[in-house]
Structures are given as structure tokens and as C-alpha cells.
């Protein structure tokens, strides 16, 4: 009887420790001099809701979730924000996870407007940057963020309307993404985020 108990305990330990599977690195990759080189998100320089510059170094040592939106968006953006808030609530106390919401409406979404929007969403947290920048730059950077998620580049509205959340790790690698309008897909995404955070703690 005692033996069986030991076996059960042993089995449960083994199965638990195997549960966390390492998240893949997404996007194009190529072997250079025998070393695998993965797609990295490009450099960026934006300005956040407090007027502070936001660059990759803002997220140094941090993973972060990226989305593209605009404050007056009448279609899918509110639904994506609702889901993103769910992710934020779940990982609220984790300092290793930041948020980057990039507005595509450079005309209307001023710094003040972004501040207003963050306030209305009840986000008063330095970890979540609502940013604007130069239009061409915003679109160029989007290509590198959404590199793995662009199924159909000719779709109307393009990436700015596809409502994806992208998970970028400390090494600028894209590790997961989801359809931010779909609560079920966001559930799966949150597990990926959790796995990434656990992976790094090991």
C-alpha cells in the first residue's frame, strides 16, 4: 500500500514538471554560421501618454504585449481592450510584463487624448504605455511586430484592424499571439504568457 502511494506521488511530480512546455520562437529563422537566428522586433521610438519617450530600452529585461488601436475606433478596439484588461488584471503584480498600445491615428490621438483614454480605462500604471509617433514609423514597426500574425496583407484595414495581441520576450522575440476579440483565444494566450514568465523563473 505504501509503495503504491510512493508511485502515485512520484508520477504526479513527474507529470507536473513536464506540464510547462517551452514556448516556440515565432517568425522567420535562418541558420547563420551554424547558429539559428530568429526574427526580432525592430527598433522603435514612440511617445507615451505622459509625454515620455518609449523605445525598446523602456522594456529592458521585460516581456511585453503589443497591440495596435486608436481611441475613437468604433469597431473591434473596445472588445480587444476589454480582453487586454483581463490579461492585465491577471498579471497585474508581475513586473516582468509590460504593455504597449500603439495608436494608428496620429492626427487625432494626441498625448493628451492618450492620457484621457488611459484614465478612462482606469490604467494608472507605468507598465502600460499608450503611444503615438510618426505615422510612417508606426506602420513600419507594425510590420516587424505583426510579422508572424499577418495572414492576409491585402485585407481591408490591414494589421491595425486585426485586433491581435502579440507577446514579445526580453530578447525581442515574438513568442505568442492571439485574436484579441476572442475570449477563448485570449484564455489560451494567457496560458502562454504564464508559461513564458515561468520559463524565465527557472
Amino acid at each position: 500500500m505504501k509503495n503504491i502511494l510512493y508511485i502515485i506521488i512520484l508520477l504526479s511530480i513527474i507529470s507536473c514538471s513536464q506540464e510547462v512546455e517551452k514556448l516556440p520562437i515565432l517568425g522567420n529563422k535562418e541558420e547563420i554560421n551554424g547558429k539559428m537566428v530568429y526574427h526580432e522586433v525592430g527598433d522603435f521610438h514612440f511617445i507615451d501618454q505622459d509625454g515620455n519617450p518609449v523605445t525598446p530600452s523602456t522594456f529592458e529585461g521585460q516581456n511585453y504585449i503589443v497591440d495596435y488601436f486608436f481611441t475613437s475606433c468604433p469597431t473591434i478596439c473596445p472588445k480587444v481592450k476589454k480582453q487586454e484588461l483581463r490579461v492585465y488584471e491577471k498579471f497585474k503584480n508581475n513586473d516582468k510584463l509590460g504593455y504597449l498600445s500603439v495608436s494608428v491615428d496620429t492626427k487625432y490621438d494626441t498625448i493628451q487624448k492618450l492620457k484621457w483614454y488611459a484614465d478612462k480605462l482606469n490604467i494608472h500604471d507605468k507598465k502600460w504605455k499608450f503611444v503615438t509617433g510618426e505615422k510612417d514609423h508606426i506602420y513600419k514597426v507594425a510590420e516587424s511586430f505583426f510579422h508572424v500574425a499577418m495572414d492576409d496583407k491585402t485585407a481591408p484595414g490591414g494589421f491595425n484592424h486585426d485586433g491581435r495581441l502579440i507577446l514579445v520576450d526580453k530578447n525581442k522575440h515574438i513568442r505568442s499571439f492571439c485574436d484579441g476579440t476572442d475570449p477563448v483565444d485570449v484564455d489560451r494566450f494567457m496560458k502562454d504568457v504564464e508559461n513564458l514568465l515561468t520559463e524565465e523563473n527557472e
Binding site: 468604433p74 469597431t75 473591434i76 473596445p78 472588445k79 481592450k81 476589454k82 484588461l85 483614454y117 484614465d119 478612462k120 480605462l121 482606469n122
Partner: peptide, 16 residues
């Protein structure tokens, strides 16, 4: 209506 007020009618924080 659901884009802003959500399918479950819960709205969105201080926005909707």
C-alpha cells in the same frame, strides 16, 4: 451595440 457595450452588456470601464 456590442462593439462598445460588449455582448454581455458590461460596457468598458469609463469609456462605454
Amino acid at each position: 451595440c456590442s462593439d462598445c457595450h460588449m455582448n454581455d452588456g458590461s460596457g468598458l470601464e469609463g469609456l462605454f
